[in-house]
């Protein structure tokens, strides 16, 4: 579903922010992308989503090249960034309708899905208000609801659990599992190793722009110790 081939990003001509990453995420998989601050997680995600152009290498979403056929590729995924930088003078309904229009979600389907996601998140009653009056967590829930509106094949999230209350965090984790059970794919970055350990089918650890370990949680833990110990050891050794 998601394939990165020799993906490289060089901002200033000197240091590589992302250095020849190769990975393949299959359908139905929850893939965790972890690494210390400044390791290249967000840069990688920005290249996957088309916000940044790779210096070299390719990104394929459902076998569609993101650079050559951006619109086709973007129809196949939805993205939730770590900071909810959205135009917030409009109402929650305006925002979700905008997403529905862009992803061509029919009126009946969008009503059903908006209710399906926003009611359990506890934000449905607030959708008529301006987003600027929402708390950080509410904005995050709104963006997640918007991303799920089009039932994307690939769901990409950057630090999705930041700002969510325990109930909503649990809900999001359930949504991610259900999405994958229905044949979808989830690719997310996180700092919370516990979540990654419990949720992911496979993980990749990135350090200084390179993947230093990749596999199932069990594979990585086979190196000895907890995921936290291995993560700290690997990222310190590099």
């Amino acid at each position: 579903m998601l394939r990165l081939v020799d993906l490289t990003k060089n901002y200033d001509g000197k240091k590589l922010a992302v250095d020849g990453i190769n990975l393949d995420v299959s359908s139905g998989e929850i893939f965790g992308f972890i690494g210390p601050n400044g390791a290249g997680k967000t840069t990688t995600i920005k290249m996957i989503t088309g916000m940044l152009l790779p210096t070299s290498g390719k990104v394929f979403v459902d076998n569609v090249d993101v650079r050559n056929r951006p619109v086709e590729a973007k129809k196949r995924f939805a993205f939730v960034p770590d900071h909810a930088e959205i135009f917030d003078s409009i109402s929650g309904f305006d925002y979700l309708n905008f997403i529905g229009d862009i992803y061509n979600v029919s009126k009946n389907l969008r009503q059903k899905r908006i209710e399906q996601f926003t009611v359990p998140f506890g934000i449905y009653e607030d959708l008529g208000k301006a987003i600027s009056s929402f708390s950080h967590g509410m904005k995050q829930k709104l963006m997640i609801s918007g991303a799920l509106l089009s039932k994307p094949k690939l769901f990409i999230l950057d630090e999705p659990l930041v700002g969510l209350d325990p109930k909503s965090a649990k809900m999001l984790k359930d949504i991610m599992k259900e999405h994958c059970a229905a044949g979808g794919t989830v690719f997310f970055s996180s700092h919370v190793l516990e979540v990654v350990e419990n949720l992911c089918d496979r993980i990749a650890i990135i350090q200084d722009g390179r993947i230093i370990a990749m596999g199932t949680v069990a594979d990585i833990k086979a190196q000895g110790g907890s995921l936290e110990d291995i993560f700290l050891e690997l990222t310190e050794n590099e």
Binding site: F93, N97, G100, D101, N104, K107, G128, K129, S133
Partner: peptide, 13 residues
């Protein structure tokens, strides 16, 4: 805070 009613109006892209 102005509360607007639920709306699911669709538009072209």
């Amino acid at each position: 805070v102005i509360h607007r009613r639920a709306s699911y109006q669709g538009r072209s892209v």
